[in-house]
């Protein structure tokens, strides 16, 4: 290699067309078999495994020039990895980006589902670290594949029941397994179980990409997604006593913010767009001083973007 003539040049949305076709075919089969993990020949991406390479490959294969992309990590648009992935697509695909859930045609996410209900036509792309819900019960792919084939999910129920025996609760709080269309047990990615009900019969198309583990799976719109539970221990989501200190929202997922070393803490929306939208609408939480100082706080969040 000499000079700049051989310096790399990349295709629209980074991936080459053959790779996109392979991923697109996997996505179509994933949609045809909801909850089943389709193996695909995942590529090395220019960000590390674990940073969302599966989600990025799915988004890159789906994305077109007219799309509007939103990227969130922990529910927030301004976390570093969300910023980085959004910047990646803005650069390699010159695609429009947004932080508004309602404006996005594609939302790539790590660990959350937006609070604002998704609509028909929207696509939610999840970044998945370990797509196999049975992996921590049986580390071997050769075994878990057979278990899915035979619909042999007893082990999962045993594990959940052992939790109840030991703790009085099912001790799984995130990546809480679901059953799809009464057939496949599926890992919802590490979203808090608070978000599980949002997957059920969502009007949006949900796509899941696991790059390192080389799996793609999907939930078409209006698909039955049921969190595993027991009659005497029904599934229940987290409930927060607190309201968001910034926008006063209730019944949303909250981040706990430690404010000092004497036990002081406050709770704020994990979904930054939801929180900002509510504040724009005039909702104010108790954590905002009722002076202009409050405006400074909210402005600085936006400025950090």
């Amino acid at each position: 290699m000499t000079g700049t003539d051989a310096l790399p040049a990349y295709n629209f949305a980074y991936l080459d067309e053959q790779t996109k076709r392979m991923i697109r075919r996997a996505i179509l089969k994933a949609i045809a078999i909801p909850g089943y993990q389709v193996p695909f020949a995942s590529r090395e991406m220019p960000m590390p495994y674990g940073w969302g390479t599966g989600g990025v490959q799915v988004t890159a294969s789906v994305l077109g020039p007219d799309d509007v992309l939103k990227v969130i990590d922990q529910g927030a648009d301004d976390t570093t990895n969300a910023v980085s992935i959004r910047a990646f697509f803005a650069k390699v695909a010159d695609v429009a980006t947004t932080t508004k859930t309602t404006e996005a045609t594609i939302i790539q996410t790590r660990h959350r589902i937006p609070e604002t209900p998704l609509e028909a036509g929207q696509i939610l792309v999840y970044q998945v670290p370990i797509p196999e819900p049975l992996r921590f019960l049986e580390p071997r792919e050769t075994e878990t594949r057979v278990m899915h084939g035979l619909e042999e999910y007893g082990l999962m129920h045993v594990k959940l029941y052992e939790d109840i025996a030991q703790h009085g609760h099912i001790a799984t709080t995130y990546a809480y397994p679901v059953k799809v269309e009464d057939r496949y047990v599926m890992d919802p990615s590490p979203v808090p179980k608070f978000d599980n009900p949002k997957m059920h019969c969502s009007p949006a198309l949900q796509l899941f990409g696991a790059g390192r583990e080389k799996r793609i799976y999907a939930l078409p719109p209006f698909t039955d997604v049921v969190s595993l539970d027991f009659e005497d221990h029904p599934f229940a989501i987290q409930r927060f006593e607190a309201h968001c200190a910034l926008c006063d929202a209730r019944n949303v997922y909250l981040d706990e913010v430690v404010t000092d070393d004497r036990g002081g803490r406050m709770f704020v929306c994990s979904d930054t767009d939801h929180c900002e939208t509510r504040r724009t609408e005039g909702h104010r939480g108790t954590g905002l001083p009722q002076t202009e100082g409050g405006e400074t706080a909210s402005t600085s969040r936006e400025a950090a973007e």
Binding site: P48, G50, W51, Q74, P129, A175, P192, K193, Y253, E256
Partner: peptide, 16 residues
């Protein structure tokens, strides 16, 4: 990648 990804924010799951 997977070992180092543990340094990415996980506070949503930690909250849970």
């Amino acid at each position: 990648g997977f070992v180092e990804h543990l340094k990415l924010p996980h506070y949503v799951d930690f909250q849970a």
